[in-house]
Design a protein around this nucleic acid. Structure first.
Lengths: 238, 238
DNA sequence: CGTGTGCTTGAGTACCGTCAACCACGGTGG
DNA sequence: CCACCGTGGTTGACGGTACTCAAGCACACG
């Protein structure tokens, strides 16, 4: 996984508008609103979600640094879902008209964005498989493998551990399980010596077994090798 | 919902390579293969799917006329899933390099394609909600509403009925249920006077109730109004 | 007329949800 | 300093939705 060329990231940052900081569990965009700008997650974890009646909520995606918050605002005016933070996070915003003009002159960035969109689609398909076919423990293990793999690709793991700021209730809403059952399934994985999850740090002790038991194959994540996550580091230097 | 301008569809058709016919339940593309061309469904129904071990299969999307079979082959070399037909179908193929050069000169077509990709993403998110949060009958009703709505947008419904060529086993694999339970859930909807499903034709007798009971809101499908489905009619004239 | 595919039905079971209570911890304020 | 409170995690008992296994049915097709 490589980042964009220096010149490109510098040009992008020069175009950047506001940078906003969010606390944990704050909404970034809400359903049916009509964002005039495009936002990208620089730091922190976020998620997409939809609400049904009766207190039901489904988390449909996890966002990591480098991911885009909103779909294409020129083609897709109104949000069909909401976006929020899991941890404290920062988001850069670009005016959407100038941003898309800018893309026309920077094909490498446009490529990276399109790749990012395709990857999000691939992850979404895999989540459908996860929810439709896998048992609770397979499902949980698969999510942990996927998250670890995505973090690894953007240099956010340390050895076999990484930050994992989800509460069990949030895990439940992403896995389509109850919090009680998530709790019990986590204990199964712990008892098997496969993971440690305490506070906000996750350790995967036995990746091969986790991959095997959750039928995880990272191919759907690794089709290309350019990320916008480098924006994060570049922005931090300013 | 409108179609592309005549000039655009004619230009597209001139560029078209092979048109291939498929029987029902034939693979169009299989996982990990590396298609050199871009395919679009002209007629018939298709689906994307992934296999796990142990006979488990999840259908991750339904394809209708106008939908693209493969993701962007320039950016996304290897298929992470397979694509197959449900009914007899025809697919047009374009050489991917010439196709993407062509798009640069035809922004309306490029827009339509990007919109199509965004819509597929929105449907995928909704399927995640469906599998994660809805009960069996909500899930089934939601799928029927969605399919009917998508068909309506491309002019493929007659009154309150449409073609619906899925077997119960295929329904089960898209809904993450067993065939037995799909069968019983279908009977519930029939007993409620909500639907008729016989052979390959589906009738939705009471759309308002179906929408309400499945918490269906078509907004996620209706963000734009240009489709490639018109290619079908145009191709038929040749 | 036999055979296969898809649909239907019944009985028994298991996975997972709900409800309810309790615990651990950190932060706040009196 | 410690009582208080809120959030997040843990545990138990019970129940229901949906799965499995198994058999039988209906229809299309050769």
């Amino acid at each position: 996984m490589t980042s964009l060329a220096d010149a490109d990231t510098r040009a992008l940052l020069k175009l950047a508008g506001e940078v906003r900081r969010f606390g944990p569990r704050e909404d970034i965009l809400i359903e049916s609103e009509n964002p005039a700008e495009v936002g990208f997650l620089l730091q922190g974890y976020g998620f997409r979600y939809k609400l049904l009646g009766g207190g039901r909520r489904q988390i449909t995606a996890h966002l990591l640094p480098g991911d885009s918050c909103s779909p294409d605002p020129l083609l897709w005016p109104a949000m069909d879902h909401s976006v929020a933070t899991l941890s404290p996070a920062t988001v850069v915003w670009f005016r959407s008209d100038t941003f898309f003009n800018f893309l026309a002159d920077h094909p490498a960035i446009e490529r990276a964005l399109r790749w990012s969109a395709l990857t999000e689609g691939a992850i979404s398909r895999e989540w459908v498989v996860n929810l439709g076919q896998r048992t609770a423990s397979e499902r949980l293990a698969h999510l942990l493998c996927e998250t670890f793999c995505r973090l690894e690709m953007i240099g956010m793991t340390q050895g076999d551990s990484c930050e994992f700021p989800l509460t069990q209730a949030e895990l439940a809403d992403t896995l389509g399980l109850s919090t009680v059952h998530v709790n019990r399934t986590l204990q199964d994985l712990r008892r098997g010596g496969l993971i440690t999850l305490r506070g906000k740090t996750l350790i995967l002790h036995d990746l091969p077994t986790l991959w095997r038991m959750s039928i995880f194959n990272p191919r759907y994540l690794q089709q290309h090798d350019v990320s916008l996550a480098g924006l994060n580091a570049a922005a931090a230097q300013d």
